[in-house]
């Protein structure tokens, strides 16, 4: 029964799919815009997550400082926080009159809400924990004795990082990147709250599904199917990581 709970909606989705007109829907301006915005925003957000998240995971896993546990909890918070709340918080911080957003606007004229950068920021906020947690876990589980051996062989810390540590955690970084990107791609709540739902500017694929569901059911189903296909691909890409443990 539990399994049917997961399977039935997917079957319903597939059986309602307008298979014959899929190509037409996917090339419609709304779908193409949403696809473009989703792709750019999720990939940009993932890159930012890698640049900021991997060093953060190292700091959390390898250094000891007062309040480290609190920082670790804060990093994980967006995973359990309702995305709408996250979006609201982002608005209060980075909005036109926000704590950071106000001075930023006065200084540069840059306005994050209701822009592509707003979508990216919302994605980063929600998706980065997935990367940080994955890399952090890999670093904590890593056997550090080879690193010590490398040090006795004369390797500097940077050299050990590049030739020993990073290759050892590369599979986990890869998995974290995929997870992070998948989460960013599916983001809805924080995005709609912080960046709005402007067609052609901030409307991502999940937002397009929600909007078109009322007016154009076929379109909504078709875009949903596209997202299902992406999710299945992610599952297959990470199958050994997860299914191996089941």
């Amino acid at each position: 029964m539990a399994v049917s709970l997961f399977v039935l909606p997917l079957i319903a989705l597939a059986s309602n799919a307008p298979w014959s007109s899929l190509g037409q829907i996917y090339t419609s301006p709304v779908a193409l815009d949403a696809l473009r915005i989703s792709a750019i925003a999720s990939i940009t957000a993932t890159l930012i997550c890698v640049v900021l998240g991997v060093p953060l995971a190292f700091v959390l896993a390898r250094t000891d400082f007062p309040g480290r546990r609190i920082v670790r909890a804060l990093v994980v918070l967006p995973m359990v926080l309702p995305p709408v709340v996250g979006g609201t918080a982002l608005l209060l911080a980075f909005g036109r009159r926000g704590m950071v957003g106000g001075p930023l606007y006065d200084a540069t004229g840059l306005l994050l809400p209701y822009s592509m950068w707003g979508v990216v920021l919302a994605n980063v906020f929600v998706a980065m924990p997935f990367l940080v947690v994955t890399v952090y876990g890999a670093l904590r589980a890593l056997d550090r004795r080879p690193e010590a051996a490398a040090a006795t062989l004369g390797a500097s810390e940077a050299y050990i990082l590049r030739r020993i540590t990073l290759p050892a955690i590369a599979p986990s970084v890869g998995a974290g990147v995929v997870l992070c990107w998948a989460r960013a791609l599916g983001e809805f709540g924080a995005t709609v709250t912080f960046a709005g739902n402007l067609e052609g500017r901030t409307q991502t694929l999940p937002l397009a599904v929600f909007v078109t569901l009322g007016s154009d059911r076929d379109g909504a189903v078709a875009i949903s199917l596209m997202l299902v296909a992406v999710s299945v691909t992610v599952l297959i890409a990470l199958r050994e990581r997860w299914w191996g443990q089941l």
Binding site: R145, P146, A148, A149, A150, A151, T152, L153, G154, A155, S156, R163, I164
Partner: peptide, 16 residues
């Protein structure tokens, strides 16, 4: 360690 030039043959071999 890296400046000591002490070569260690480790028991648990610690290979890369």
């Amino acid at each position: 360690a890296r400046h000591r030039h002490v070569g260690v043959a480790f028991q648990e071999p610690r290979l890369f």
